[in-house]
Nucleic acid binder design. Structure first.
Lengths: 223, 223
DNA sequence: CACATAAAAATTGTCAACAATTTTTGCGAA
DNA sequence: TTCGCAAAAATTGTTGACAATTTTTATGTG
């Protein structure tokens, strides 16, 4: 994970178990739809049910688990319509993030993005065409979002929506064919950021995400 | 409040106290920045600290309260930069909601919006110019968002962001001068929805929110 | 054998007490 | 008086037990 935890990272049982469960859900160790039994989990992680329940409430508002009153909690199951919904939200939010990034990104920030692209390019040349898996794509998006300088937007995308995105990507990462195109779209975006062109940056990012969505729709309809 | 609670409304102490505290924060009974002491609150509402803490965690992820590890929770204080951040997010999200609404709204939905505008217009004629306070504006936005048919978007806006918006609006509602213009913008949007013009609907909604933001910026800089 | 019903087991919801940490208070010395 | 430090009070973090509800299981009847 290229992400750095917040500076004021809590160190309570509730916080720790939240992160642990979050990651277990995202990477699939806790399968979608599986029941999250409080006695079982508290025994497994050697904590009492109090902090565990607090953690579950937080995961609930991250939309990673779904609660049924008196029926317990289950890991969310993302079906195609829901994934599409998420991509519509990403389109709007990350488009805006790109626009704000064009306004606020530093020269150093742009250099970092360029460096990221260069590494990816070299990797593609070496391995013969495959843009470094989903992780590289996510890393790139993370940095653009960070450059927006809008704390609430950063939180909404990186601390809430992106766990859902990654949860989905774990089972269906980028197709090789889409990979190269995505890389070019990233290059295009960096150009727009460098020119500080807010509208263009927003447009490019939105198109980028629309194409990703269309790719997923097609990919899943053919299976 | 014109909002209807979810069909599967939980009826646990934790859920009830969440709603109670949420509303108390939104309407200002619990002032921004004030400390939320667990012993005090649990005594005041006659519940134990367990459910209360679960509620606090949920309010935390709704961004209505801020936690400091071992230091307790305080009601969030919205300063101008944060409000501006929220309006940028609203611009992106509600713009998208308007676009989706243009695609998905029913004829009946459009009729309902028209009726809403008509009532507002009559009220303006009667009282001499003032668009029915912030509530009417929020009600209109609510309905457009609902018409988007994107459940996750609806939840993000109506169950998360809008409590923050309302919390702010309670102390600084619409200026009379802005009121009439806002009404016209609403009319304009309904026209676009009626034509099922997604791009235009998005554009109008975004401009509407940009103007609201600019109005707030000006209003607060002059005080 | 199928089905309904009731008892039993398991799980969620809630509580009150204990531990750990932070803040406040009070005292003494420079 | 003011500053620093230690004791005390208050608050948050955590736990295990109890109550309420749901699910499972067993049993008896048609």
């Amino acid at each position: 994970m290229s992400e750095s935890e917040n500076a004021t990272t809590e160190n309570t049982l509730a916080s720790n178990i939240t992160r642990t469960l979050r990651d277990a859900i995202v990477c699939g160790d806790l399968a979608p739809g599986s029941k999250l039994s409080e006695p079982k989990l508290s025994k497994e992680y050697n904590i009492s049910r109090g902090p565990l329940r607090e953690a579950m409430r937080r995961l609930e508002s991250m939309k990673l688990v779904k609660y049924v009153p008196h029926g317990g909690a289950r890991v969310i199951t993302l079906d195609l319509p829901q994934v599409i919904e998420i991509y519509h939200i990403r389109e709007a939010l990350e488009g805006k993030a790109a626009a704000l990034a064009a306004k606020n990104i530093t020269d150093e920030g742009i250099e970092n993005l360029k460096r990221l692209l260069k590494i990816a390019e070299e990797h593609m040349a070496a391995t013969g065409g495959a843009y470094i898996q989903a992780d590289a794509d996510i890393d790139f998006h993370y940095r653009v979002i960070q450059a927006s300088n809008n704390q609430m937007l950063i939180h909404t995308l990186c601390e809430e929506l992106y766990y859902l995105v990654r949860m989905y990507r774990y089972k269906s990462s980028l197709q090789p064919s889409r990979s190269l195109q995505a890389f070019k779209e990233h290059q295009h975006l960096v150009l727009a950021l460098e020119q500080r062109d807010e509208q263009l940056a927003e447009l490019i990012m939105r198109k980028h995400i629309v194409r990703a969505r269309e790719n997923i729709e097609q990919q899943l309809l053919n299976s």
